[in-house]
């Protein structure tokens, strides 16, 4: 097993994220997946948008592109079409990927371009100071919804399934082992793969909604975890509220997996060398 720091820009650490923010756990799980798959470090491209989640690209020692707000899937599409041999991974957030960048995300899914999108959902805009996101639950407090959010929120996985993503999964940042496994599956999946990682924002969401610090938010995630696939499902023995229904849309595991033709742009046939 390689030291995971091989894939880290150590000189850039510690990273800018707040104490208790689980985004760093997600980066680590991703690096573990890259290591498990033994991907060539020079052939991995990480493409990010804007926001806390997107800052992760700066710390991963691959070819990294920190683009514009919401547009990462579009940058990644051009990159992948021009260099199909690269493993292109988009790291985005709930605001980045579902609000300003929602259009790019669903079209990348529809095309079935062979990239992996990891959407880190912390239910709020962290980088800009705690404003309501398309994933902020109804009733939750954000700096722009001081009396509680009145808008409905997106179910990212359902949205992406509707858009035709050929691989859709949800994992919890509190479950790094499952997260790594699903990420490895997503990277190797032929076609567009989407992972919603349920993460946390203790600094804003936690503080505004009295949900505790990073540790409390993280462990409380597991009590909402209903695994639908994978060997770990049977192993969960503790449930915070065993008798109540899990919140809707919180099913975890691989929710969609199909193989359909991969989009590679309009190009000539395979080069005929003869």
């Amino acid at each position: 097993m390689t030291d995971i720091k091989t894939y880290l820009r150590e000189w850039a650490m510690p990273h800018v994220l707040c104490p208790g923010c689980a985004h760093g756990i997600v980066l680590r799980s991703f690096l573990e997946a890259v290591d498990q798959l033994q991907l060539e470090q020079d052939k991995v491209a990480m493409v990010a948008g804007i926001g806390c989640s997107s800052r992760l690209a700066g710390y991963a020692d691959f070819c990294t592109l920190h683009g514009t707000h919401g547009r990462a899937p579009a940058f990644a599409t051009g990159l992948k079409l021009a260099r199909p041999e690269l493993d292109v991974v988009v790291v985005t957030g709930d605001g980045d990927g579902l609000a300003i960048g929602g259009n790019h995300l669903i079209h990348a899914a529809r095309r079935n371009i062979d990239i992996t999108v990891m959407l880190l959902n912390n239910s709020i805009y962290g980088m800009t100071g705690g404003q309501a996101a398309p994933t902020t639950p109804q009733g939750a407090v954000a700096s722009t919804t001081p009396s509680g959010n009145t808008e409905a929120s997106f179910d990212a996985c359902a949205l992406l399934q509707g858009a035709g993503a050929s691989f859709v999964a949800r994992v919890l940042a509190a479950n790094p082992i499952e997260m790594t496994k699903v990420m490895a599956d997503a990277i190797t999946h032929p076609g567009f793969s989407f992972i919603e990682v349920v993460s946390d924002c203790p600094e804003y969401f936690g503080r505004y909604n009295k949900a505790g610090g990073g540790a409390e938010m993280l462990v409380s995630l597991t009590s909402r975890d209903v695994a639908v696939a994978g060997p770990l499902a049977a192993k969960r023995f503790v449930n915070h509220v065993p008798s109540s229904e899990p919140p809707p849309g919180m099913d975890t595991g691989v929710l969609q997996r199909e193989v359909r033709p991969i989009f590679s742009g309009i190009r000539g046939g395979d080069t005929d060398e003869s």
Binding site: G78, A82, H104, I266
Partner: peptide, 29 residues
């Protein structure tokens, strides 16, 4: 383009179009 070892893509909007162009250029195109 297909005859010139190139790739054509119709994107979802103009924002995405130039993003894809930048992505491709960074890949050497």
């Amino acid at each position: 383009l297909p005859g010139a070892d190139g790739v054509f893509v119709q994107m979802e909007d103009e924002i995405a179009s130039l993003a894809a162009v930048i992505g491709a250029s960074l890949a050497g195109s």
